[in-house]
Structures are given as C-alpha cells and as structure tokens.
C-alpha cells in the first residue's frame, strides 16, 4: 500500500468521526432522525473505492473497540459492539466494500451525469442498505432472540430514512467525483 492510500484511509475515517459530531436532522415524514455518520458507508464506497473504504471502516471499528467515543452521540467502546446493533457497526466495512465495488464498475470518466447519479445511487442502496441489513439484522436477531422475521419487519421503519441518505450520499459523491475524482475505475 502506498503512503497516499494510507493517508486517504485515515482521513476518511476521520471524516466519518466528524460526521458523527454533526447534529442529526429530523424530517417530518420519517420516524427516525437522520445522522450524517450513517451516510459514511455510502460516501466512502462511492468516493474512495472498495478497498480503501473497507480499510477505512476497519480502522473506524478499531477506534470504537479501543474505547474512543467516535460514534454519533459520543458513543463508543466494546459495549456498543457487544450490544444489539453491533452487527451493523461490524457490517460497515463489508457494506462499504460492496458499495465501492459497484461504484468502481459503473462509474467511469466520460459517462453522462445522469448515469453517474444512477450508479452512485445503486451502489449506495445495494451496499449501504441491502448488504448492511443482511449482516446487521441476523446478528440482532441472534443476540436479542427476536425472531428474524420480526427483526426484519421492524427494520423496514428505517428504510425511508436510508433511501434519503442514499440520495444525499449520491449527490455528495457526484460532487466530489466532479471536483476531485479518487474512485479507481474497473474494467
């Protein structure tokens, strides 16, 4: 790994920490407030690509594990990883990787802005929502004993908020891609 990759990985993890310090926004039509930090997975995958994004989130999980209050609301420590939502946090690295993988395959210089937007949105939804829930929900069901179907049904309440996040992440990723492209292209 070259030094620039290492620095990008660390800086993105630091950005995710800072996103956790931004006050959450509430939208009238969505039951749960939107935290900027939970967009981090989608942003990382779409902006710095699969490998660096995944490593960035492994670094972030390490920060949580060693007791730094880096999660939004000043949470952190092993207790969070041991709790019901631990799977979502550990799943971030995989989710970021898949998001990045899709973005790298779809986005390349020269394609129209519309296709870029669709590509980033697709990557965010598949990686940042589907993959993340595929890891987080069974984990939650396992540790809390809530039957899988009920846990999955309950998490539907978060989907509208997640789609809004995917939309915001898409626009932000596209703005960064236009201003300072870092996403490696894949054939």
């Amino acid at each position: 790994m070259n030094t620039r990759d290492l620095v990008l990985i660390a800086l993105f993890a630091a950005i995710v920490v800072v996103l956790g310090l931004i006050p959450p926004i509430t939208l009238g039509f969505i039951p749960v407030p939107i935290t900027a930090q939970s967009m981090g997975v989608m942003l990382a995958g779409c902006i710095i690509g699969a490998r660096r994004a995944a490593l960035s989130f492994l670094l972030f999980v390490l920060l949580v594990a060693i007791g730094l209050p880096v999660l939004s609301g000043g949470r952190g420590g092993l207790a969070i990883l041991a709790g019901p939502s631990g799977g979502f946090i550990i799943g971030w690295a995989v989710a970021a990787y898949i998001t990045g993988l899709i973005a790298e395959r779809v986005i390349r210089p020269g394609i129209s802005e519309g296709r870029q937007l669709i590509g980033f949105f697709l990557a965010s939804v598949v990686g940042g929502i589907l993959v993340l829930y595929a890891i987080g929900v069974p984990w939650l069901s396992f540790v809390t004993g809530t039957p899988l179907v009920a846990a999955a049904g309950g998490s539907l309440a978060f989907i509208p908020g997640d789609l809004v996040k995917a939309g915001i992440a898409t626009l932000a990723a596209r703005a960064v891609y236009a201003g300072y492209p870092l996403l490696p292209a894949r054939a």
Binding site: N2, T3, R4, L6, V7, L8, L11, F12, A14, I15, V18, L19, I22, I25, A36, M39, L43, I47, I48, I168, L171, A172, A175, V176, G179, Y180, L182
Partner: peptide
C-alpha cells in the same frame, strides 16, 4: 444543509492527502 456542507468538507479534506503523504515520506 448537510449536502452543501458534506461535499466541500470531503473535497477539502481529501485534497490534503497528497501533502500529508509527501510529508510522511
């Protein structure tokens, strides 16, 4: 709005990566 802040925040931060990497080397 988060959108108008997050974009510039990420660009400005990641642009430092080259100088920081050069300094590390």
């Amino acid at each position: 709005r988060p959108l108008t802040i997050i974009g510039p925040l990420i660009i400005l931060t990641l642009k430092d990566a080259d100088t920081i990497a050069a300094a590390i080397d």
